[in-house]
Design a binder for these strands. Structure first.
Lengths: 194, 194
DNA sequence: GATTCTGGTTAATGGCATTAGCTTTGTGGT
DNA sequence: ACCACAAAGCTAATGCCATTAACCAGAATC
């Protein structure tokens, strides 16, 4: 019996392929094992069951997404940075729908790599927001709004949740434009004092 | 053997309970059957398998959500209407997380009730946007932005996706405020003509 | 070269979904 | 009232998937 030479990374990479091609809900140990030409229980030598696999996929995907966003925004600031970030974000979600969906999983405090990736993500967004003069709690609020909008759009797009046939690119551009305007007019304090 | 007196509506209602209490991913025919005190295959007399059940749950949930939003915004316009809508939306998602998640499923064109619910939803949002002078394609773009932001926020909240401990209510209020500002300054045409 | 660890195997168990086929209960027509 | 039939339940059978246990071969280490 020849060895297959698997590693956790290889298994997770294959899981990403399966999830991206068939959807995260169709990610199954059986499918991954078959793709790797190995029996299903063999995967347990590298991964803690289906749940552990999903967890590691989340880490991998978040790392990848953050990388793309970071690369896209480097050297930019303000409107250009927000546009580039939004574009990279949506692009990743569209090209890696399963991985992106895996990202949603709350970071496992026991997985340092996942926590690190999450922190890196926050750092990038904060860097972009700094150009708008947003810091501290204001930056946190703004980050949440920004992330909500981007995440909501790409999720709905992936789920074919936008019924009408109008151009989605245009809608996305307009939303990003609206976010930019919002950030420029972000309140100094809340609730408004006057 | 006494009859259980089930109907599709009863089965779907029980499915909503299960999904809301345990999460949509844990919605299972076995759980529903057990709750109803009936054998699993009996459900097939009322529902087209797990997939059909999820489909009907989607319809039910979307109808319910639209109802809440409609009731909340009736008689209001502009900022007040947007705030009320956002509040009702988030409230539904928080109190019925499983049902809300089911809502994501793309409307089945073969299910008139689902299509009707989706249309009603659009109508409500359009009515709110009309107060901002948004109509036609501009209303479609704005609806998508609005929906993306609300959906993204409540989804991330439900998934515990916001890592930091800062007040989520405040962040939501600020986001809704930002949406309101965006709608007031929505461009007349796109791309901007300089 | 013997030992030991590791990455693979097959076998067994259990949950869930689905289909088929049977039985009982209501109900409607006569 | 009675008979027939449709509808609503049931059990049994099948199959997929996840998980665990027990086993075996190959690689590395001493």
């Amino acid at each position: 019996m020849p060895r297959a030479g698997l590693t956790p990374a290889i298994v997770v990479a294959e899981a990403a392929r399966v999830a991206d091609e068939q959807g995260l809900d169709r990610l199954t140990l059986a499918a991954v094992a078959q793709q790797l030409g190995v029996s299903l229980p063999s995967l347990y030598k590298h991964v803690r069951g289906l749940d552990g696999l999903a967890q590691q996929l989340a880490t991998r995907a978040l790392t990848e997404l953050t990388e793309r966003v970071t690369d896209a925004t480097v050297g930019l600031s303000g409107t250009a940075a927000v546009r580039a970030m939004a574009s990279a974000y949506r692009d990743y979600a569209r090209t890696h729908p399963g991985s992106y969906a895996a990202t949603l999983r709350a970071p496992d405090p026991g997985d340092p790599a996942h926590v690190a990736a999450a922190e890196r993500t926050v750092r990038v967004v904060f860097a972009v927001l700094a150009a708008y003069g947003l810091e501290g709690d204001r930056a946190i609020d703004a980050t949440r709004a920004l992330r909500s909008a981007l995440h909501g759009f790409v999720t709905l797009e992936a789920a074919h949740g936008f019924g009408l046939p109008q151009d989605l690119n245009r809608s996305y551009d307009l939303m990003v434009d609206a976010l930019d305007r919002s950030l420029r007019t972000w309140p100094e304090s809340w609730p408004p004092t006057g």
